[in-house]
Amino acid sequence: MGNAMVYFNNIFSSSGSLEVKPPGPFRVMVRKEVGDYIRSWRFIIMLLLILLTFLGSMYVSMANIKQAVSNVNDPDRLFVYLKLLTTSDGTLPTFHIFISFLGPLLGIAMGFDAINSEHNNGTLIRLMAQPIYRDNLLLAKFCAAIFVISAMFCCLVLLMLGAGIIITGILPGGVELLRILAFIIMSIVYVGFWLSLSICLSVKFKHAATSALTAIGIWLFFTVFYQIIVKMVVSTMLPDPRTLSEAGVLHYNNLILSFFRLAPNQLYTDAATTLLMPSVRSLGPLTMEQMAGAIPSPLPFKESLMIVWPQVTGMLAATTAFFALTYFLFMRKEIRS
């Protein structure tokens, strides 16, 4: 009761009129960063690029949706809105494949000059001269970018749902909405990892060009070269899989998959595939004994979520680790005019 009275006393002034408190410094910085992101040309270009790929994927999937849902051998044919995100005729990849490729570029574009541009323009020392904590500045940069990314993905999915309702005349089911919502959250976490990495590089390097090239180099390494290097190293260290027994081949494939899953794009692809395709029961190889008697049928949402939970926690842990490293570097950074 006493806390409530203090709360109302803080809201109303002594004259009885409603007194609106000004927003705190953190909210002001978040609003300012959101406005800067929305007005920046690089974000507009990345938004148009992702929008074009989304429209292309939706056009291909909607042109083939009738054939996809009429395939009696497909256990996922009843999930019409999930098929819109996973159906393709081979001319264009599906939308989640596009996100696994373009999502890192979006995160890098929004964070590679988050700190070093403020330092080079001379505005960082002015910010630090104000009664603002350093961690508030980092949190404002990160939260503003995550807010913009979340709004963008939500708008794209709402466009997909609206187009699906107009074309098919079928309302999405509750399970489909849960799976699509989980896919959106996983996509935001995936882009957030690259955003956290790029902000860390912007603190580490003085010049924005250096941090951008380093982040793009890391993205190219995991996207193009990492799987090639893993296959070469494993093939030279282990015997030929053609000479192994069934258990040896299973162990060989599991070992390669374990190394592949150190790459963030592989974690995202595994999670997105499992969430958007309910019939996926395992992300690794299965023996004939494990497959014997199995009936192709979609898994419940809870079971699919349990399958991808290691991927989700891995992405969250990596994002948190890079943000903690960014915080450590920025707190030790000497700021001069």
Rank of each mutant, 00 (worst) to 15 (best):
241 P>G: 06
207 H>R: 14
152 M>Q: 06
280 V>D: 06
13 S>N: 15
257 L>P: 02
205 F>E: 03
280 V>Y: 12
68 A>E: 10
242 R>C: 09
279 S>Q: 06
62 M>P: 03
228 I>R: 14
327 Y>H: 06
39 R>T: 11
171 L>K: 00
135 D>W: 07
77 R>H: 07
268 Y>R: 05
260 F>Q: 05
168 T>Y: 03
317 A>W: 03
90 G>S: 10
34 V>Q: 00
208 A>L: 03
182 A>H: 02
2 G>Q: 15
114 A>L: 05
244 L>W: 01
279 S>D: 08
182 A>V: 08
328 F>K: 11
77 R>D: 06
107 G>W: 00
147 F>P: 00
18 L>D: 12
94 T>R: 13
313 T>M: 14
297 S>L: 04
273 T>R: 09
55 L>R: 08
160 M>Q: 02
16 G>P: 10
102 L>W: 12
328 F>W: 12
111 G>K: 00
123 T>C: 05
231 K>M: 09
62 M>E: 12
58 M>R: 08
32 K>A: 02
98 F>C: 11
8 F>M: 07
174 G>F: 12
335 I>D: 02
213 L>T: 13
36 D>Y: 07
11 I>H: 14
155 C>V: 13
187 S>D: 09
131 P>G: 06
181 L>H: 04
130 Q>S: 11
57 S>D: 11
86 T>Y: 10
61 S>A: 15
194 W>L: 08
276 L>R: 01
28 V>D: 13
64 N>C: 11
312 V>S: 05
103 G>E: 06
309 W>G: 05
278 P>R: 02
141 K>P: 02
108 I>W: 05
28 V>Y: 09
75 P>D: 07
323 F>D: 00
277 M>E: 05
71 N>C: 08
294 A>Y: 10
324 A>E: 07
136 N>V: 05
70 S>H: 07
290 Q>L: 08
219 W>L: 10
104 P>T: 13
269 T>H: 11
98 F>A: 10
245 S>V: 09
184 I>D: 03
285 P>D: 06
286 L>M: 13
187 S>V: 05
218 I>R: 02
5 M>H: 14
238 L>G: 05
243 T>H: 14
35 G>D: 09
195 L>P: 09
290 Q>N: 04
158 L>M: 07
150 S>W: 04
150 S>P: 04
79 F>R: 04
228 I>Y: 13
17 S>K: 11
219 W>S: 08
293 G>P: 01
156 L>G: 01
138 L>H: 00
101 F>Y: 15
224 V>F: 15
232 M>Y: 02
64 N>H: 14
124 L>S: 03
275 L>F: 10
186 M>T: 14
199 I>C: 00
301 F>I: 05
233 V>I: 14
311 Q>K: 11
70 S>L: 15
115 I>G: 02
295 I>S: 01
97 I>Y: 15
313 T>L: 12
256 I>D: 02
336 R>Q: 09
108 I>H: 08
262 L>F: 15
277 M>Y: 04
241 P>C: 11
49 L>P: 05
140 A>G: 01
106 L>T: 13
33 E>A: 01
59 Y>M: 12
241 P>M: 07
44 I>Q: 14
81 Y>G: 09
22 P>T: 13
